[in-house]
């Protein structure tokens, strides 16, 4: 049981960055803005989180720095798309391209620098419980934060007046503006929230998941997070399900690569043969599974045009210039 428990714990660690980044982007898209810069914002969060942790010795300060850097960096996107009404797709790409370069430059002194990992929760008595103890009470703090985040966003969007306002801006910015709702201001706030979440997700990678700085260490997770929002048809709890599905996939793939067949002779023949078969697949093919799965998932979700149309925020990606 120890192995299964360890695997499940790592699934949570692998899913958390996707969950946080995708939840942030969900709020942005619900306000009608498509920010394709998630990958870049995550990288900025990862490098600043790692740097501040390394310089101060306090992982929490690193997390805080990553959140602030993510939010401030997203303002660049906000200023261009909201104030200067530039094309959102192109500007989001620019945010990612600049983020890749800038994080690489900032991170140069930190390559190969030993990182400090955030300690996991430990509650005497509870964490030691058999089977569920470590799963429920022994995760890293950002895992709990991510769960709070999903609950909070779900409640905010569908349980509060402010959430309704935000959704109305995303569904029809013209009418919202006519009703006197400050469309641009709400979108700025949403974009900054998305940036803060992406920064946090990046910090999770460089402080919790693999405590080190490697150039481009997000490895496409920002893009997968974007796909998860579509997959989830813009609902927070479906984002949660999607993120954990992908986390499971990643960990399964990693564990199958690492497993040593010679120690597993006691397994039933069929299971052993299946494992041997999978082990025979080149590692590069296994590594490409999350990317291929993303494409497959997008195809399955979007083939139903009517369903997609119904769920997509109607003003998503469209520029808004107020007429005064």
């Amino acid at each position: 049981m120890d192995i299964a428990e360890a695997i499940l714990t790592t699934v949570a660690t692998a899913s958390t960055p996707l969950l946080i980044a995708a939840t942030g982007e969900l709020v942005v898209e619900r306000s009608g803005v498509l920010n394709l810069g998630v990958e870049g914002m995550m990288l900025m969060g990862a490098v600043s989180g790692f740097a501040v942790t390394a310089l101060t010795g306090y992982p929490w300060l690193g997390v805080l720095a990553a959140v602030i850097v993510g939010a401030v960096y997203s303002l660049l996107f906000g200023f261009l798309t909201l104030t200067l009404v530039t094309n959102q797709v192109a500007t989001g790409l620019a945010l990612t391209l600049l983020g890749v370069g800038l994080s690489g430059l900032i991170g140069v002194p930190f390559v190969g620098h030993p990182g400090i990992q955030m300690t996991s929760l430990y509650i005497p008595g509870l964490t030691g419980l058999p089977y569920v103890g470590k799963l429920l009470f022994g995760e890293d703090p950002l895992f709990y934060l991510s769960i709070v985040l999903v609950i909070g966003v779900s409640w905010f969007l569908f349980g509060t007046r402010a959430g309704l306002t935000l959704r109305s801006v995303g569904d029809n910015h013209g009418s919202a503006h006519a009703l006197g709702i400050p469309v641009i201001r709400i979108r700025y706030l949403a974009v900054m929230f998305g940036g803060a979440c992406a920064g946090l997700a990046g910090a999770q990678l460089s402080i919790v998941y693999t405590p080190q700085w490697v150039e481009n260490m997000t490895a496409g997770r920002g893009w997968i997070a974007l796909a998860l929002v579509v997959f989830a048809s813009w609902r927070p709890w479906r984002v949660f399900a999607g993120a954990y599905l992908f986390g499971l996939l990643t960990i399964a793939e990693l564990n199958i690569q690492a497993v040593d067949l010679s120690t597993l002779h006691q397994l039933p023949g069929a299971v052993y043969d299946l494992l041997a078969l999978i082990k025979a697949i080149p590692s590069q093919f296994l590594s490409s599974i999350p990317y291929l799965a993303t494409v497959v998932v997008l195809v399955v979700i979007s083939r139903n045009r009517r369903l997609t149309m119904m769920n997509t925020p109607a003003s998503l990606g469209r520029a808004f210039v107020p007429d005064r």
Binding site: A227, T294, V295, L298, V299, S302, R303, T308
Partner: peptide
């Protein structure tokens, strides 16, 4: 399939 070409 109406799949988003940016992501794919």
């Amino acid at each position: 399939f109406n799949t988003n070409e940016i992501l794919s």
